[in-house]
Nucleic acid binder design. Structure first.
Lengths: 125, 125
DNA sequence: GGTAGACATAGAAGGCTGTCAATATGTTGG
DNA sequence: CCAACATATTGACAGCCTTCTATGTCTACC
């Protein structure tokens, strides 16, 4: 059971929350959002997420991800699973290889919740 | 020693990073950003941050923060210290009370790094 | 069928984290 | 100076997290 079928991903639940600075987050909301942040709150996973999100073509092979780290294959696999379980990345198995893709809308929701600079003219310093 | 004097806060260092999806985060950048996310990756701290950031007047007394939780005073104090140490909040002691203020630019930098929706028409949700 | 390769899972070790009770520190007022 | 109060620090403990090695699973190819 890779994900829940009837409930929202953590990543999807975030979209319902107003920015942190708009109004106090409820305890329930905080419990939903924290796992997403926790998933990103590790240097390895943060780099993995960035590698996936920034890769040309939108997807990247797990084998290529592993080459960027001095870590064992199971460790990389574990971190990718954490990102997958909270809904920050999608996976697609093609033959022997597994391709990961960033969920842009999940990152966008999380960024908005944390607090994006107000939409306006270019900031001047 | 509340903070480093010559080096940047984690919160300040984040401002130097492009969004996750723009280019792969370096290992060094990831090591700098992860502590910030880790600080927010706890339900209690996330609510504390939201309470501080959303409070009218821009600041809020620690005593008022504690009343929102079913946790001991030392625990709240500990969580506030975590947020303070990474530079997400400022503190101001006035008499017996301590007032906390959100560092809006730190939240904005972090939000931008994670990935804000591209500036466009108002989202309908 | 058998072998090789890519990825996932299981189990264990060591370190980190959240929480508390107890105590320390600093401030106000008598 | 002492009492009362707000907040911070200390020390301890349970639980979780990151990492590894060993192993399992699935696909491709001969």
């Amino acid at each position: 059971m890779p994900k829940s079928l009837t409930l929202l991903d953590p990543a999807e639940a975030v979209a319902c929350c107003a920015p942190l600075s708009a109004r106090p987050l409820s305890a329930e909301q905080a419990e939903q959002v924290a796992p997403l942040l926790k998933a990103l709150a590790d240097p390895v996973r943060l780099r993995l997420m960035s590698l996936v999100a920034s890769h040309p073509g939108g997807e990247i092979c797990a084998c290529e991800l592993g080459e960027s780290f001095d870590l064992s294959q199971p460790t990389i696999s574990h971190h990718l699973k954490v990102l997958y379980d909270v809904g920050l990345v999608d996976r697609d198995k093609r033959g022997v290889w597994v391709y990961y893709r960033a969920r842009a809308e999940a990152l966008a929701s999380l960024g908005t919740l944390i607090g994006c600079p107000p939409a306006g003219p270019a900031s001047g310093g």
